[in-house]
Structures are given as C-alpha cells and as structure tokens.
Computed example of a mutant assay.
Amino acid sequence: MNKLFTVTAILFISTFATAQQTTDSLQQKATQSIKEKFPRARVLNFEYGQSLSREFDSEFFDEKFQEGEIKSQRTFNASANIPIYKTRKWGLTGSVNYQFNEFEFNNIETTDITVFEQNGTVNFHNFSTAVSSTYFSTLFKKPVIYNASLIVDGNDEGLERVKGLVGLSFILKRTARTTMTLGAIVFIDPTSQLPFFPTFSYNHRFKNSKWEVDFILPQRLLLRRMVGENGRFSIGSSFGSTGFYVNVDNPNFAETFEYSQLEIKSGIIYEHRFSDYLIGTFQGGLQNFISNRLTEKGEPTNDFIYKNNQDPTGYFQVGISIDPFTKK
C-alpha cells in the first residue's frame, strides 16, 4: 500500500463526535473530524521523516541473502486534496501525492544479484492520483458514510497500476464524551498485505480531565490532550506502511517490482495551530518493522521473492498542513 492508498482508506474510519442526524450536519462534522485527525486529508500537506541506523538481514527465494546496515531512511511526502463536486449527500474529491524515499546502505557485500540494497544511497520517486466518491446517508437509523476510490500510481519511469477500495463506516454510539464507530474496507488490489479489514473507532474524553483516548482499528491508539489554546500533545502508537516501485535491470527477472513495508511507530506527537489554516506537526519515537517484502508488480504479496528483517530504530517526522477551508 502506498501513502495515498492508505490516506484514502482512513478518510472514513474517523469519528464524528458532534454530528447531528441531518445529512448536511453529518457531512460537515465528518469532514471536520477527519481533517482534525489526519493531516494528509487536508487540502495541502507536506511531511519529512527520517529513521535512524539499524541492522538488517534478508532472504531471496527463501535463501539467505544480503545483510548489512541501513544508515538512514529518509522520506518526503507532498499531498493535495481538492473538492471537485458536492451536494447534500454526495461529494467527489480529487487527490494527488508525491512520495520520495532514500535509503543509505553500508557494509553490504557485493553479490551477482542486486535487489535494491547496495553500498551508498538509493532513491525512489513515486506518484499517485485518486478520485474518491463519498455518500452520506443513514443505516439502521444511524449516520453512515459510504466511500469508493479509484487510484492510479507510478514512478519516474511511468504509470504502473490502477487500484481501488470500497468501504463504509457508521456510528454505534454517540454521547457527550464517547463515540464509537464500526465499518469495513476492501482493497481492490491483489498486492495489498491487508486486502480486507474491519474498522472500529473509540473516542472517549475522561470525566473532569483534559485527557482523551483515541483508538482507531487498525490505525492507531493515542492518549492526547490540549496544550494551551493552540497546541495538542499525544502519546501512543500508530500503524502505517511505506510502498514504492523498484525497477530491476536484470534479464532474468521482471522489470518492475513493488516493495511493501509495514511498520508500527510509538512515541509522542505535538501539533500546533499557527493560524486558522496553518498547522505544524512533530512526532518522534521508536519504529518497529513488521513486514518488508518485494513482489513482482501486480502479484499477491504472499508470492514475494524477497524479504528482509530490520531491527527497531528511532525516528522523527515534521510536517506542515495548509487548509483554507477549515476553521479553528
């Protein structure tokens, strides 16, 4: 799953704590809540991240392969979400995303076959665009959101694949301090390591406290509180992914592969609102790598030809979001 694929998935996992039963209010409050929780859902978002040094070992066709050190991994992500059309119950949004990944390797022995690890620096440039349709309605007398997205992606070598997803999310419970939602997402993509998963969210503000718990399955578990008038502090863990295309210059293999990296980041997040439409974010902590696989383009991830195991390491990420349509 690349970044834009993940973003379009989480757009309707969020909670809608103050939404009313009317469709107009549901759409407005849902949109505000999503943007409040997910920077990449805002009109413009820019992020730079870096993970620190760690050791790794790998397997190629189930045989022991290269090992060495990843001195650093740097990422830059720029995304834009532009409303195209909106009615009382239906909305259409266009999204574009650019993702840059840079790996710096060290102490790797040279072999006859090279996947993408090699001593020095290796860069990957990936692009994606999506059109998402969202429909606001009711189900069993409860507010519900339906979503369908069509995604086209590629890299600096050209367009690669067309993907999609469908899903829904509706409110189970809503009180003054607690909101629960339930839903499901299906990825129309055979290469996804998570082709289907249920979604569940739980948001609870503790009585007589500034703290609240924000749980979104399978994306994150956070404890957070406001800091002053314009800041917000969070501590916890989040699940995410990094994916990009790898072009292999070897006549014995396919020309294009997909690298998929699943990870859990644990630590702190601080967000600060500089103005009604400008928000900065810093986060850092420990990064654990769950699954790192290389698969021929379009093939299921279970048919991977290569995988690696990476030690946990530290990371940090800074970002800036611009959203002229959002109020404080």
Rank of each mutant, 00 (worst) to 15 (best):
F274V: 05
L194V: 12
K86G: 02
I264V: 15
S241W: 10
W90V: 00
V227S: 08
Y315M: 07
Y135Q: 04
W90E: 14
F76V: 13
I113H: 09
I216D: 14
S266R: 02
N208H: 15
L92V: 11
A41I: 12
S137F: 02
R88I: 13
A148S: 11
G314W: 12
Y245C: 00
A17H: 10
R177F: 04
T178H: 05
I235T: 15
E229I: 13
N288T: 12
F304M: 08
K86L: 01
T199N: 10
N208S: 11
S128I: 12
N147V: 01
I171D: 12
G298P: 01
F38E: 15
I269C: 01
N119A: 05
P143S: 08
K307Q: 13
L159N: 11
I188C: 06
F136Q: 04
S132D: 08
E229H: 11
D62T: 11
V186F: 09
G49C: 04
E47Y: 04
Q66G: 07
L223T: 10
K207E: 14
S14A: 06
G231R: 06
T256L: 05
G319H: 03
S266M: 06
Q20G: 09
G314V: 03
Q20D: 13
P143G: 06
F253S: 06
I151C: 04
P39E: 10
S33E: 13
V248E: 14
L168S: 10
T179F: 02
E263A: 02
M1A: 08
F140Y: 12
Q21L: 09
W90R: 00
T181V: 12
I113P: 00
Q28E: 14
G240Y: 04
R224Y: 07
T93Q: 09
V186S: 10
L26Q: 15
V122T: 15
G120H: 09
F233I: 15
N123H: 10
V318K: 04
V43S: 03
G267H: 04
T301R: 07
W211L: 08
S53Q: 14
S51R: 01
T114C: 00
S137Y: 06
